[in-house]
Amino acid sequence: MTGKSGPRRVTSADVAREAKVSRATVSYVLNDAAHQKIPEATRQRVREAAARLGYAPSAAARSLRRGRSDIVLGLLPDWPIEHVLGRLVQQLTDALAQHELTFLVHSAAHPARPLREVWRALTPAAVLALDAFPEAEADAVRAAGIEVVMAVHGSARSGHRSPLVPEEPIGAAQARYLGRAHRRLGYAYPDLARLGVLARPRLDGVRKVCAELGLPEPDVRTVPVDPDGAVEAVKAWLAADPPVTGVCAFNDDVAMAVLAALRWLGLRAPRDLAVIGVDDIRAAALARPPLTTIVRDTEAIARGLARRIVDTLDGARVSADPIEDPLLVLVRVSA
């Protein structure tokens, strides 16, 4: 029995025949090999032949040339993949591509393939985990010859004393903004335990600024993204002694749940309760009232992470300081 095969992959031999040069010349030209005295006319002929045939060097060939893979394995924790996380993944893909690295993402959401199977199959140049990375797993990765293991929210013995991208400044920025006009703040904590790695330091930032401003400890309430749970939290804040008049929410989704609860109770932000979110998701500007929020520079984060990975791969000195993440308070109506 015979079957029809798909189109044959164009090889460097095809390019060599088309350009009437040797395969070595094709390799020198397309790989920009130094110290090769090849006439510019020949170089142009090789490039045109490669373009005409649609030739692209294989990943295996690139890896052989560099002495390592061009893959960076990105490990996503079991977090909701929504607007901001999706944007960061795209920006990391773009930032790493500028260094001829390919960003491949693996989600830990159940029932994902075990992580160890993934990195063994891919043998990436580097592993970037958005959450903390287990030390035992990091040791196993390095033992397999993968030298770069970086974790955004956990060191994995990377030498970073603090997270690469700290979350505490976000809560601090929220509290500083509301603390100018409010004497008691609340914190709307998410009801997904797996988001604690982000929520806890953000809450720590709120607490720190409250202490600096001489305000009471923030009144922390878990706010699910549903009307009933959010209504109960709002009632508790308003009934506190003294009452909460400004709420720092974990993110925009939680903030909009608080705004919905206020409307359900016949109340209004910011008159009855000011609310500030994080992330500036697309719906934030359409909320009732439009949501004041903290905007992160995810592009700067992506560039910074890519730079750390490339520098580490190249053996260059890598800063131990957190990546700069300029924060902007986008003022709308809710606070």
Rank of each mutant, 00 (worst) to 15 (best):
K20Y: 06
A121I: 00
A140H: 11
I281D: 07
E100C: 03
R184F: 06
D14E: 01
A260V: 08
E232H: 09
T222I: 13
R308C: 00
T93D: 12
H182D: 00
I71V: 07
A16H: 00
L265M: 09
R184Q: 14
L259C: 04
R87F: 06
A269Q: 06
D14H: 07
R23Q: 13
R282V: 11
A320V: 15
L164W: 05
S22A: 09
A140D: 13
V152G: 09
L185F: 11
I301R: 04
L286F: 14
P166D: 05
P216W: 13
P218S: 04
D191P: 06
L64T: 07
S107A: 15
A287V: 01
V15S: 01
P190S: 15
V26N: 10
D191V: 10
S58C: 01
A19S: 11
R8Y: 04
V148C: 14
V225P: 05
D311S: 01
D139Y: 10
A129V: 13
R47H: 13
T93Y: 07
F250R: 00
S27G: 14
G171K: 10
L273Y: 10
D272L: 04
A34R: 15
R45C: 06
A285F: 06
P242D: 15
A19K: 05
P190M: 15
W237I: 00
A112W: 01
G154K: 03
P289A: 03
R296F: 02
E168Y: 15
V223L: 04
R271L: 10
L330T: 09
F103G: 14
R194C: 01
V10Y: 02
A236K: 10
G6I: 09
L215I: 13
G159N: 15
R116Y: 13
L273F: 11
G67S: 05
C210D: 15
E324K: 09
V275M: 03
E117A: 13
L262N: 09
V329R: 07
V278C: 07
G159L: 05
A136Q: 13
R66T: 03
D279C: 08
L115D: 10
A188P: 01
E100I: 02
L178P: 12
R65Y: 03
A109R: 15
R142F: 14
S5R: 09
R180F: 00
A13L: 07
S107V: 10
H106N: 13
L305C: 02
A172C: 04
T11I: 14
L265C: 05
V149F: 02
D78I: 15
L286A: 15
L53P: 08
R66G: 13
V329D: 12
A140C: 08
A151R: 01
A320L: 09
P201F: 08
D325M: 14
L267Q: 14
G154A: 08
R116D: 09
P227L: 13
G246N: 07
N251P: 04
V333F: 04
R202V: 05
W79C: 12
R288V: 04
S162Y: 12
L291M: 03
D252W: 10
G277M: 06
N31V: 06
A316D: 08
V118P: 05
M256I: 09
A284I: 04
R194Y: 04
L130W: 05
V15M: 01
V206T: 10
